[in-house]
Amino acid sequence: MESLTRISAVAQTTFRETIRNKILHNMLGFAVVMFGLSWVISAWSVGEPEKIIADIGLTITVLVGVIIAIFAGVVLVHGEVDRKTILPILAKPLHRWEYVLGKYIGFSSAVLLVYIGMNVILILFLSVVGGGVSSGLLKAMYLSIWEVELVVALALMFSSITTPWLSALNTIILFIAGRFSYDIKFFLGAHPGNAFAPVLKIIYVLVPNLSYFNLRHEAVHAIPVSAQMLIYPTLYGIIYCSLVLLIASLAFRTKDLA
């Protein structure tokens, strides 16, 4: 119970700090401008304007969420270590893993808030255009949350280990690799005897399989989505985030802060 109180305290502080971050505000503004632009673009599309707004809108919300996660997340732990502000915090009866978990909860909650805000704006745009909001769209929005949350966890993990620049680079590489995880699987299926197949198999298992969280195609084309397509990716997201946070806690436990 005491542990929860401590985690909650760190989380609240991190949430307040993140909400005040200028990157967050700029990216939110950028997202709104891009929604407007997608609206204008859709008017030139000759057909299916609501499909184009939904496609571009969903892509923008995820990308903005990921950009916030990377550029605000990579300085999350390292910034405090660099400024030595972490020392008085850790001088209190607080475990290092509690600090990492609190940081994650606070930061991911702030990113989630922005993400939900962007999606509400997107829904409003779609309502104005006449596309309406389908359950498929809401499901796609829900699963995309996990894509963003996973990147948040990765950024925090690298922030606990290395410098912000390297953290950003590593997170971006993993994000891109995760986006193409389906392609790796496809390649392995097409070329099972390839010399790099064992290495690719390991990469496929280790990189976050972000294609699991992509229901955007199904959403815009009204393709039915089974409950399993929501449950399994959610479980995958929870387990992957937990493992990443575990690594972050282990790395941070042995980190020399002096």
């Binding site: 673009i41 030139w44 599309s45 499909k51 184009i52 496609d55 571009i56 892509t59 891109i176 986006r179 193409f180 389906y182 392609d183 294609s211 992509n214 955007r216 195609h217 815009v220």
Partner: peptide
Amino acid sequence: LALADDNTAADLLWI
């Protein structure tokens, strides 16, 4: 280029 977001790539090329 679209980071596997094929639908968006298709939209932009269509435009």
